[in-house]
């Protein structure tokens, strides 16, 4: 087991009452359980605002958790605080949605990549070895080595995203979280990047956690799909199982909208009660129900 999430919770305060009384919260992530095996690509799908990105950022401890455990290779990361989390960061890296804002525009590609090596300073002591590593990863993402001295604003969206992927790989992570990493790119570049991700997975023995709302891409690349809705995972099953046999009403709605471009008229609002649990329906297929 590479990563295990247990009952992850992240609430955001909405209204601050006088002296903290009467405060209300948005349950952005509300009790998520998820397990990721080594080499098993998992995808999180769901509409905007359902908590996918919040979940991803919570896993990386980019924001404080409100509850739950993050167990990475048997080590509970959720209890580690501040400085003690830093050594674990190199195992999990992230590629962000917008390649125009995830690369600091003031830095050259060389500096961007070398900076990502901070945690591996011991291994790459000299400037030369750092540069070698940067050039190696640039070639791994099929970019030319002479791009090192250029600034992000000189690149196209696809090239920037390749740089971002190369940067995420600098520390040789085991888990790579791709937060809508291809959704801002045009379809041809999307295809190239997806292809590249497949190559990189074989080359660097990566495990991917995809976050997307693009079901076509997800179908191509993931082994397991988790459907998120209102901060909870409503359905979790192997990829083909989800596409062939969607059980939860929200999953059905999502599939018909994405695959057939057809909106299902909602007969009644999808209600999720606090007591609902994921129920095993066989074949590794879990559905949220009372």
């Amino acid at each position: 087991m590479l990563l295990e999430l247990k009952n992850i919770k992240k609430y955001f305060p909405v209204k601050k009452g006088f002296l903290g009384r009467g405060q209300t919260f948005v349950r952005a992530v509300d009790g998520v359980d998820l397990a990721i095996q080594e080499g098993e690509n998992v995808s999180l799908v769901g509409e905007s605002g359902c908590g996918k990105t919040t979940l991803a950022r919570s896993i990386l401890r980019l924001m404080p958790l409100d509850g739950g455990q993050i167990i990475f290779k048997g080590e509970d990361l959720s209890r580690l605080s501040g400085r003690r989390i830093i050594p674990y960061r190199k195992h999990m890296q992230m590629v962000f949605q917008d390649p125009f804002s995830s690369l600091d525009p003031r830095f050259t590609v060389r500096r961007l990549l070398q900076e990502a090596l901070t945690l591996e300073k011991e291994q790459y002591k000299t400037k030369g070895s750092q540069e070698e590593r940067a050039a190696y990863l640039l070639s791994a993402v099929q970019l030319k080595g002479d791009m090192l001295s250029r600034y992000p604003h000189e690149f196209s969206g696809g090239e920037r995203q390749r740089v971002a992927i190369a940067r995420a790989l600098m520390l040789n992570p085991q888990l790579l979280i791709l937060d809508e990493a291809v959704s801002s790119l045009d379809v041809i570049v999307q295809k190239q990047i997806i292809h590249l991700l497949g190559d990189l997975q074989r080359q660097f023995r990566l495990t991917y956690l995809f976050i997307s709302h693009n079901l076509k891409i997800i179908r191509k690349i993931s082994h397991k799909i988790a459907v998120m809705y209102q901060g909870k995972i409503v359905e979790l099953a192997p990829t083909e199982e989800i596409f062939n046999n969607p059980l939860h009403p929200y999953t059905r709605e999502l599939l018909s909208a994405a695959v057939e471009y057809k909106a299902i008229a909602r007969e009644e609002a999808i209600l999720i009660s606090d007591h609902s649990r994921l129920i095993d329906k066989g074949n590794g297929h879990f559905v949220l129900s009372e």
Partner: peptide
């Protein structure tokens, strides 16, 4: 809240840096 700041945190840069 910029993504490059979040990215910098994912590869373990200190707050000061």
């Amino acid at each position: 809240e910029r993504e490059y700041v979040l990215a910098a945190r994912t590869f373990g840069l200190s707050d000061r840096k």
